[in-house]
Write a protein that binds this DNA or RNA. Structure first.
Length: 781
DNA sequence: GGAGGCCTCGGAAGG
DNA sequence: CGAGGCCTCC
């Protein structure tokens, strides 16, 4: 089928409610799209419909949250309408606003080549400021201060708004942190000094630009006749206000989202925006996409059961015409390792029984720490898997180091970059000298770089040997800058990598890590080379905006690099793998068969959420997201005991399990009992525990007579005879209860692969594999 | 300036 | 338990 035929019948590929939403181009509209209802299809077809109806792609703005979402949507539209789609303004909020800010930088007093500070840079800066102000960093934790500043910006409170806001100031005073407003002030001053913006500033400054410069506002209002916002439930207040300003002239604004899948309130997303939207646009047209195409009736039913427990939600009824499907399996395991084994076994069997491929399976979990036992179990059965998440390419140290050289070359005021590289690789400029420079910079209210340029000033009390090293460093960076003005990005980049000594430093490190660092640098350089030759910016950008010159400069490459935070997709050629990821990362994906592991109270829902209703509702939406990833089969699993920070803790089934209608659950996989809300695992509460974890301490009765217990170390076992009385406590009471007391007949192997033959008092004899169990020897009274 | 000891603290995560 | 930050010592 060629693209013309596909285009002519694109409307036929939509159901009536999807079509309604697609053809309604003018005026404000809101699409509430239930899970699996074809949201992306509606969004892309809506843009296709516009282009087909003579809307200039150049006047369409589509905002997403992730680079991935933007990329995917763009690809789909290109496939449908061809290269017209290249002119769409489609990207993340941050990338689109950054592009606008670079054009309009002068109006708000920034150079066009301003640096974008990433999360690490911001945190370092805050940490430094707290130290300089001589505040206690226990009370003023950098992450907390930054979070507070970030929320202020995301709610459009400027520094002066903050300082004059009685409520904010008294909140800080009550919390014993009255200086936060002041820290905010200093933080912004320092960013400005460095010609830098953090991620929040990209929003806040766009807001300021549009608010204070009517000409700029008018320009972009005219330009963007049609505006679309994906994942609207994840927008924060600043994003909403900016979008509203941009749309004020034409009011052709369409937002798409699902309040039931809002899982990012903790980082500022504001469900309230959906309610405000209805208020702000009285003639709003609302479309509800309620038919689910993805999952079986069972899965959709269970998801509806769960979400019905939330008070805050827009009313909608997700339904499906799909088959009923299999019931939900519930796996109950003794330990986290056992849970992994059961899941791996189930995958192994289902793969054969249903001719599924590895990639049809996903195992989801609440916290990254849960992946270890799952990985081990999969490896045992030779099931290939892929873990999502982890350090993205651009967050790696060696990459950030080289990029810091680039940043400093382009913007000498970039203090965070300077700090990374002034003595890396080592060139004899120590911390003490650097601190002297900082003090002088502060006195003179100039940048540290300025002081370095002026290093031969008699007032600067630094040994002349070090002074000349600093002068050399300055000369080197300046020579980079000269080169960067005219030569293409790749030539400059590889020259910097060489001349700075960074490449050599990494090359000399022959450890396997060192080699991989070196390879990563090569990979980055290869990417820059491609950029130089292809002439496209690293991020999607309207092709018409490209410079006509055939030389791609380093600063063009660097423009959006701080915004590229995607986790890297390193494949070894085999993409048929089971996916392991957190529930957050699974949003937007779908799999034939899904396992949600660790369905335990205090894990999912997280124990940090149990005291607040808002947090609990977000946890529940998170579980909703997890359930609705599954197409054909869903398995929920929980362990009765789990290692947490080295301690074995007892676990109860999650309250969420009891929110699912039992008719959807297959009981044969839950052999002993249906989990009840607040249920305790079956077992004898009077059994002793030696865990010092506060959770287990509170849940279990204290011992009447406290036996002395030690964790076994392998040396101790060497002297251990089979006749010594021993109680094996794996998973606290569980095995203890099952087997009672016993004597060890033989011990073989060493931790963590210890095998024991034990004769129990009830006459049973068992061979136990004590792998990863915390074995405790109890001296009998 | 780097290695090693000690202390702290532990959620999820895009740009 | 274990990663990361910080301090100390050479």
């Amino acid at each position: 089928m060629n693209s013309k035929t596909r285009m002519s019948n694109y409307l036929d590929q939509l159901n009536p409610s999807q079509r309604e939403a697609v053809v309604c181009m003018d005026g404000p509209s809101m699409i509430i799209a239930g899970a699996g209802s074809g949201k992306t299809r509606v969004l892309t077809y809506r843009m296709v419909h516009m282009i087909k109806n003579q809307v200039d792609p150049f006047s369409i703005l589509a905002l997403t949250f992730t680079n991935k979402a933007a990329r995917e949507m763009k690809d789909r539209i290109i496939a449908l309408v061809g290269n017209d789609a290249l002119n769409l303004w489609m990207g993340t909020f941050h990338s689109v606003f950054a592009r606008i800010l670079r054009v309009e930088a002068e109006k708000i007093g920034f150079p066009s080549a301003f640096t974008i500070y990433d999360a690490d840079d911001s945190k370092n800066l805050v940490k430094k400021i707290i130290q300089e102000q001589q505040l206690d960093d226990k009370n003023y934790k950098p992450s907390l201060v930054l979070h507070r500043i970030s929320s202020a910006k995301n709610n459009l409170f400027s520094v002066s708004d903050y300082l004059s806001n009685d409520q904010l100031m008294s909140e800080d005073r009550m919390a014993g942190k009255p200086k936060i407003g002041e820290l905010y002030q200093i933080y912004q001053k320092r960013l400005k000094q460095a010609d830098a913006m953090d991620f929040d500033d990209l929003l806040f400054n766009t807001y300021l630009l549009l608010k204070n410069h009517p000409d700029a506002l008018l320009k972009y209002q005219k330009k963007f006749r049609y505006i679309m916002v994906d994942e609207f439930q994840d927008t924060n207040y600043a994003q909403y206000i900016i979008v509203r300003k941009l749309a004020a002239q034409h009011e052709n604004i369409c937002v798409v989202g699902d309040d039931a899948q809002s899982i990012y309130a903790f980082r500022g997303a504001n469900i309230q925006n959906i309610l405000n939207f209805e208020k702000d646009y009285p003639d709003l047209k609302t479309f509800k996409l309620e038919q689910n195409y993805r999952s079986t009736k069972t899965i959709v039913g269970a998801a509806n059961n769960v979400i019905a427990n939330n008070r805050h939600q827009l009313k909608k009824e997700v339904w499906t015409e799909n088959t009923g499907g299999e019931k939900i399996r519930l796996l109950r395991a003794i330990s986290d390792n056992e849970e992994g084994n059961q899941i791996a076994n189930t995958i192994f069997e289902d793969r054969m029984n249903f001719q599924f491929k590895n990639k049809d399976f996903a195992i989801l979990y609440r916290t990254n720490a849960q992946s270890r036992s799952l990985e081990e179990a999969l490896r045992k059965l030779n099931i290939p898997y892929r873990i999502y998440g982890g350090l993205s390419f651009f967050k790696r140290k060696e990459i950030k180091d080289l990029l810091a050289y680039f940043r400093l070359t382009i913007n000498h005021a970039d203090e965070e970059a300077l700090e990374r590289v002034y003595n890396y690789p080592t060139r004899g400029i120590g911390k003490t000298s650097y601190e002297k420079l900082m003090v002088i910079a502060d006195q003179r209210t100039c940048t540290i770089w300025n002081v370095m340029e002026d290093i031969h000033d008699k007032e600067i009390e630094i040994a002349s040997g070090i002074k000349s090293k600093i002068a050399d460093f300055v000369t080197m960076i300046k020579s980079f800058a000269v080169m960067a003005k005219t030569q293409n990005a790749y030539d400059v980049a590889s020259h910097i990598a060489q001349s700075s000594g960074l490449l050599k430093e990494l090359f000399n490190d022959k450890t396997s890590e060192g080699v991989s660092h070196y390879e990563n640098i090569q990979e980055l350089l290869a990417g820059i080379k491609e950029f130089s030759e292809r002439g496209n910016p690293p991020l999607e950008s309207p092709s018409t905006e490209l410079r006509e010159s055939d030389t791609r400069l380093l600063n063009e490459y660097m423009q959006d690099i701080a915004l590229l935070t995607d986790a890297e997709n390193k494949d070894d050629g085999n993409d048929d793998k089971v996916s392991l990821m957190t529930v957050h990362q699974a949003k937007g994906l779908e799999f034939k068969e899904v396992f949600v592991s660790g369905m335990e109270e205090n894990l999912f829902p997280s124990q940090l959420s149990v005291n607040s209703r808002e947090d609990m509702e977000e946890e529940r939406r998170l579980f909703y997201v997890a359930i609705t990833r599954a197409e054909k089969r869903l398995t929920l699993s929980y362990a009765m005991t789990r290692y947490r920070w080295g301690n074995l803790t007892g676990c109860e089934p999650s309250r969420f399990l009891s929110e699912i209608n039992p008719e959807f659950i297959d009981m044969k996989f839950a052999p002993e009992s249906t989990p009840q809300r607040g249920a305790r695992i079956s077992g004898d509460d009077s059994l002793p525990t030696y865990s010092n974890n506060s959770f287990t301490k509170n849940k279990l009765k204290p011992l009447t007579k406290k036996p002395t217990a030690k964790a076994v170390d392998p040396k101790l076992l060497e002297n251990f005879t089979a006749d010594d009385p021993l109680r094996i406590e794996i998973g606290m009471q569980v095995l203890h209860q099952r087997f009672g007391k016993g004597k060890v007949m033989s011990l073989e192997g060493r931790m963590p692969d210890l095998k024991a033959v034990v004769n129990f008092e009830n006459g049973e004899s068992k061979q136990l594999l004590l792998k990863y169990a915390r074995l405790k020897i109890v001296e009998q009274p």
